[in-house]
Every structure is written in structure tokens, then in C-alpha cells.
Amino acid sequence: MSELVEIIAKALVDNPDKVEVKEVEGEQSIIIELKVAPEDMGKVIGKQGRIAKAIRTVVKAAASKEHKRVMVEII
């Protein structure tokens, strides 16, 4: 699942080599932490979080295919 977040983030930002994705597995859900260069924050969040929402929708759908709960956090 973190690979999916990485693919999407890298396609959107100007500094793909600065994209870091960490997966933290909890008991009931997986938290995926996405870190990008400060100047790229807008590229993964978007106006009113529109881009972040699109990323979360795709990841959520992918996770439910594997009966998992995934949360994407942008830090």
C-alpha cells in the first residue's frame, strides 16, 4: 500500500527523490506517513485538500480490496 502512495506522490511533486513513505502498522489499521519536500506540500495537498482527498480515495479503495483500513497522513 505504501508503494501506491509513493507512486502517486512521486508523479505529482517536483522533487521525487525527496518523497518518503513510512508504513506504521497498528492493530486495526495501517497508517501511511507521507513526507515530501516543503515546497512540494501544496502538490500533494491541493486547494482545500482536494489532492490529498483524491490520494486517500484511491488508497482506501485499494486497501478495502485487501480488507484493510488504511490512513494516509501527510507530515
Binding site: 502517486i8 508523479a11 505529482l12 482536494r50 482527498k53 483524491a54 490520494i55 480515495t57 484511491v58 479503495a61
Partner: peptide
């Protein structure tokens, strides 16, 4: 998902 992929 279709709408999200379209936007991305």
C-alpha cells in the same frame, strides 16, 4: 475512484 484517478 474514477473521479480521483481522473483528477490525479
Amino acid at each position: 475512484v474514477l473521479d480521483s484517478l481522473q483528477y490525479l
